[in-house]
Computed example of a mutant assay.
Amino acid sequence: MRGRPGDPSALVRALCAVALVALCARVLGTAQDLAVRLLLAAALPLYALDQLRTARIATGTGPAARPDRVGLALSRAWLAAALIALAAWRGTEEAVPVVLGALGAGAAIGLASTRLPVVPVAGDLHDLSRPPRGWRHLLYRLWPVASLAFVLVLTLAPPDGGWPARALLAQMVVLPFLVQRFPPNGRGGLLRAPIVPRLAGVALIAAALLLP
């Protein structure tokens, strides 16, 4: 089954994201904050993997599956937007057009992804009997929009002196993927545990934020 937390796909995606950001920086001549961007690019697929995986598990067929298909499209849109922002970053002075452009491009990619078939993934590493209910369910449904509000406020209304680049970029990597559809069930051992790539992503994000 592709995309299992224990196989190398998460690492391969992280390396591809780093290569894309490095290539764009080279081609576009945008070396600003490059070390931070590369660390966050490596963190993004690792940190977002389990959230995207559970969003895919939740999708199905029929009218009842439509909200989860929308949720998966929004997660994909955020993944694309964060990666585009990291690749196109030109410094804090041009943060607004870069972030807004990345959000627009990500939304277009997320919308286009709704036309693609959803490849099934196994749910053996998650507790499918415990989907979010009540206020947790509402939080899960609204979180992509809440993340958008946070990102727009932090980008468009910065404090005096502005935000550092690492804060503006890290928010797009962290916020959209905080809330996921199903919790892990603790099976599969350490190497297959969904928490492992997520913790690796957290460590890389922390390194980017603490980088001198």
Rank of each mutant, 00 (worst) to 15 (best):
L175A: 11
G134L: 04
A165R: 04
P159K: 10
P158M: 09
S113R: 08
H137V: 00
R136K: 11
R133H: 08
R115N: 10
L125Y: 01
A146W: 13
P132A: 04
V99P: 05
G161N: 02
A167S: 13
V173I: 09
A105E: 09
H126G: 03
V151D: 02
P176H: 04
W163K: 01
Y140G: 01
D160V: 14
T114M: 15
G101W: 06
L178V: 14
V119A: 14
F150E: 10
T114D: 01
P144M: 07
L154G: 05
V119S: 10
L178D: 07
A170R: 04
I109V: 15
L103Y: 03
P120Q: 12
L175E: 07
A146V: 14
A167N: 10
S147A: 15
V153P: 00
A149V: 15
A108N: 02
A105K: 07
R115D: 06
V121K: 00
G106E: 13
Q171L: 13
P120E: 12
A157Q: 12
W143M: 10
A107L: 15
G162R: 09
L139R: 11
G123W: 02
R130E: 15
A157E: 10
A108T: 03
P120N: 12
G106R: 12
A107Q: 01
L142Q: 13
L100I: 14
M172S: 03
P164N: 08
V174T: 11
R115W: 12
L103H: 03
L168G: 07
F150M: 14
L148K: 02
L169Y: 06
P120L: 11
R130A: 15
Q171K: 00
W135F: 13
L154D: 12
L103K: 03
P176Y: 02
V118K: 03
D127C: 06
R141Q: 15
V174G: 06
P144Y: 06
G104A: 12
L168Y: 09
V119F: 03
R133V: 10
L138Y: 08
D124V: 02
V119C: 05
F177P: 09
L168F: 05
L139Y: 01
F150W: 14
L156N: 11
L103Q: 04
V119G: 04
G101I: 08
A165E: 04
V173N: 08
L100H: 10
L156W: 08
V118W: 00
G162Q: 09
T155V: 07
V118I: 14
L152V: 05
G101F: 06
A157V: 13
Q171E: 11
R166C: 03
L154M: 14
R115Q: 11
D127E: 12
Y140D: 07
V179S: 04
V145D: 07
G110Q: 06
L138F: 09
A107F: 13
G104K: 04
P117V: 13
D127Y: 01
L154Y: 11
R136G: 14
A112E: 02
